Amino acid sequence: TLNGEGPLYITVNRNKRGITLDLSAPDGREVFYRLAERADVVIEAYRGGVAERLEIDYERLSRLNPRLIYCSLSAFGPEGPWREKPGLDALVQAMSGLMAITGAPDGGPALCGAPVVDTIGSLLAVQGVLTALLYREKTGEGQKVDVSLLDGALLAHAARLSVFHLTGEDLPRLGSAHPELVPYQAFRGRDGWIFVAVRTDQLWRSFCGAIGRPGLATDPRFATKADRLARRKELVPMLDVVFLSRTVGEWMEVLEAADVLCAPVNNYSDMVKDPQVVASGMIAEQDHPKAGRFKTIGVPVKLAKSPGRILTAAPALGEHTHQVLREAGYGDAEIQSLRQRGII
C-alpha cells in the first residue's frame, strides 16, 4: 500500500466523489431516490436481482426520472440461467472460451495477464451510456442500458469465432503465434523477446533478407502463406536458432530497416521506460493527500478542444456525503439525523 492506501483504489477512483449510504434501510433508499431524480446516469454493477431486491432498479427509478439513463453492468447479462450468478473477469474468460485458446500449445488453459474483460466491459458501458444520452438529446427519453462482461468477451472473439463458425473446429492454443500466419509470433533474442509479424508473401521475402537467410525466400517449402502454415513445425525451429544470434535491439534495427513489423516484448520495468510509452503520456503522476505523490495511468483518449485531466484524488470513505446531500436539498439537521441513525 501507499501509506495505507491501495494503489488500485486510488488509481481507478480519481475524479470522483464518494458517499456512504445504507440502501437496505427505507430512509437510505429515499436518499438514493432524491439523488436519482436529478441524475443523468445511474450505473449499477450488482449481481442479477440485487437492484430489484434493493428497490433501486430501472423500473422504479424511471418513474421518478423518465430522462434517466440506467446502466446495468453484470458478468453474464440479464437473461439466461447464469443471470443471478456472481461473476468476475476470470470466470468470464473461462466461460467465453478466451481461456481455452490462450496459453502454450503443450500447456493448459491460461488466464490473460491483465483483467482485459473487465476493461472491455467498462468501455462498452461508456459506449452504451453515451449512445443513450444522444438518443435522449433527440427524444427527451431515458432508457436502460444492459452491458455484460460475457458479451464483451464474445465481441473480442469476433475474428476467431468467425473461423470456428465456418469450420466447426475448436481453435488450438498457440502461445504467441497466429492461427493462420507464420511467422507471426514472439522469438527469443540474445537478451529478451521480440514479436515479429510477417503478414504477406512480399514481407516474407523482405524478412528473409533482413535476418540473413535469403535462401528461405525461394525455398519452395515456404514460398507462400499456405506453405508456411502447413510447415509451421519445420520453419519455426529454424527461426528460433536465427533469432538467438542477436539482441532485441539489433533485431529491431535490421527488421525495421526492411519494413518488417516488429516490437520488443516488454516486461513492466522495460515498458514504463519505452520511449513510445513515455511519449503517450499514459504513465502519469498524481498527488494524494494520504498516499503522497505516486505514478498512475494517464488519460487514454486525447481530445483536442476539451482534453481530459486528473483533477481530484480518489475520495476517502464517505468523504463527500455531506456535500452531496446538501446539493440534493438536505439541511444540516437532516444530514445529522441520517448520520446518527447509521443511514449515512
Results as ranks from 00 to 15, higher is better:
Thr11Cys: 04
Asn15Gly: 05
Arg17Ala: 11
Thr20Trp: 06
Leu23Pro: 15
Asp27Trp: 07
Val31Glu: 02
Phe32Gln: 02
Val42Leu: 01
Val42Pro: 04
Glu44Pro: 05
Ala45Val: 09
Glu52Ser: 15
Tyr58His: 14
Glu59Ser: 12
Leu64Asn: 07
Asn65Leu: 09
Pro78Cys: 03
Gly80His: 13
Arg83Leu: 11
Glu84Tyr: 03
Asp106Trp: 14
Asp106Ile: 04
Ala114His: 03
Ala125Met: 15
Gly128Cys: 10
Leu134Lys: 15
Lys138Cys: 02
Gln143Ala: 07
Asp146Asn: 13
Val147Gln: 03
Ser148Tyr: 00
Asp151Leu: 05
Gly152Phe: 06
His157Pro: 12
Ser162Leu: 11
Ser162Val: 08
Val163Gly: 07
Phe164Leu: 07
Leu171Tyr: 08
Ser176Val: 04
His178Ser: 10
Ala186Ser: 15
Gly189Val: 10
Asp191Met: 12
Gly192Trp: 04
Trp193Ser: 08
Ala197Val: 12
Gly209His: 14
Gly209Ser: 11
Ile211His: 02
Pro214Ala: 15
Ala223Cys: 04
Asp227Arg: 12
Glu234Gly: 10
Phe243Ser: 02
Leu244Asn: 05
Ser245Met: 12
Thr247Ile: 09
Val248Met: 04
Glu253Ser: 10
Leu255Gln: 01
Ala257Ser: 00
Cys262Asp: 01
Ser280Leu: 12
Gly281Phe: 00
Gln286Pro: 10
His288Asn: 00
Leu311Tyr: 06
Leu317Met: 03
Glu319Cys: 07
Glu319Leu: 01
His320Leu: 01
Ile335Asn: 09
Ile344Phe: 09
